[in-house]
Design a protein around this nucleic acid. Structure first.
Length: 255
DNA sequence: CAGGGTTTCACTCTCCGAGA
DNA sequence: TCTCGGAGAGTGAAACCCTG
C-alpha cells in the first residue's frame, strides 16, 4: 500500500520542482500557487519520511533520496500519462472532423508519417492539417481554431489547454566541426566565433534566453535567424555557433 | 540593504464518510 | 437521502531568508 500523503499531484509537483529548481517555476508549470507547491513538497517529504529537496541552495537541488525517488516516480508518472494519451486517442477514433496543427520543425519528416497513421486509424474522419510556429499553434488551440496541436512549450500551464508531454528536447551547443573548443570556451566568448541566435519572436529564443540569464551568461549576437535550417547551415559553414535542441540538430544532419 | 523567492499562517472551499 | 463534521487542498498576506 502506498503511504498516506504520497499523491500523484504531489509527485507531479515534485517532478516539476526537480526539473526547475525553483518553487516559483514549479508553481507556474503546475498552475498552482507557490504556497501550494511548498505544501505539496512538505507533505510528500513527510509521507516518505525523507528530505527529497535541498532547500538551502538556489536553484534548489535534489538530495540523494530525492534522486532515487524521482527515478521511480518519473516512471510512474510516465505510465499514467501514457494511459491518459491512449484514452484520448480512443476518444478521437469517433471524430468526423479534426483540425490538427503540427510545429513547422516537423514539416518534412513527422507530418507525412502522422498523416498516414491518422488516415489509417480514423478512416471516417476529415482532416485539416496546418504547420506553423509553436506560438501560433498554441494560440490557435486557445482560440479554438484547432482541436489539437503538436508544439513546443515552455512548460508553464496555459489557460484552457491540456498538455500531454510527448518528448523532452534538451538544449545542446552546436559549433563548426573544425573548431577545437568546448562549451565553456564558446559560452565564455574565448573563441572569437559569433553566437547565432534564433529570431527573438520564436518560443525557443525565449527559452534559451531564460536559461542563459539563469546562469548569468550574457551573449551578444550579430545575427538573429528565423529559419532553423538556415541557422544550421551557417554553423556548418563556420560563420558562428548556436544553441539548439537535439531534435533540431538531428534534422540538420545533411549539413 | 533591496529585491526576489520561499515558507508559514489563517482562512475558505470541496469532498467524502458516518450517522440519523 | 440528507446533514454534519473532519480531512485535504487551495489561496492571499505577511514574515522570513538568501543573494548580489
Amino acid at each position: 500500500m502506498i503511504k498516506k500523503g504520497v499523491t500523484l499531484r504531489g509527485i507531479e509537483v515534485f517532478e516539476a520542482l526537480a526539473g526547475r529548481g525553483s518553487v516559483a517555476h514549479a508553481a507556474a508549470m503546475t498552475g498552482l500557487s507557490q504556497p501550494a507547491v511548498s505544501q505539496q513538497i512538505s507533505n510528500l517529504e513527510a509521507a516518505v519520511g525523507a528530505k527529497l529537496i535541498d532547500h538551502s541552495c538556489r536553484p534548489m537541488r535534489l538530495t540523494a533520496a530525492g534522486e532515487t525517488f524521482l527515478r521511480h516516480s518519473s516512471l510512474a508518472l510516465a505510465h499514467v500519462r501514457q494511459a491518459q494519451s491512449e484514452l484520448t486517442v480512443m476518444d478521437l477514433v469517433s471524430l468526423t472532423d479534426l483540425h490538427l496543427g503540427v510545429i513547422d520543425d516537423f514539416d518534412n519528416d513527422l507530418t507525412p508519417r502522422l498523416a498516414t497513421i491518422l488516415a489509417d486509424s480514423m478512416a471516417g474522419c476529415r482532416f485539416r492539417m496546418v504547420t506553423d510556429s509553436s506560438k501560433r499553434l498554441l494560440q490557435a488551440v486557445q482560440d479554438k481554431a484547432l482541436h489539437i496541436a503538436i508544439a513546443a512549450t515552455d512548460g508553464d500551464a496555459k489557460e484552457g489547454l491540456i498538455e500531454i508531454p510527448l518528448a523532452r528536447d534538451p538544449f545542446i551547443i552546436v559549433a563548426p566541426a573544425e573548431i577545437e573548443a568546448d562549451g565553456a570556451d564558446l559560452l565564455g566568448g574565448r573563441t572569437g566565433l559569433p553566437f547565432l541566435r534564433y529570431e527573438a519572436d520564436q518560443l525557443i529564443a525565449g527559452q534559451i534566453s531564460n536559461q542563459l540569464s539563469r546562469h548569468n551568461i550574457n551573449l551578444t549576437s550579430q545575427f538573429e535567424i528565423g529559419s532553423h535550417l538556415a541557422l544550421m547551415a551557417m554553423v556548418a559553414r563556420g560563420i558562428g555557433w548556436t544553441i539548439t535542441t537535439s531534435f533540431g540538430y538531428c534534422r540538420a544532419q545533411r549539413f
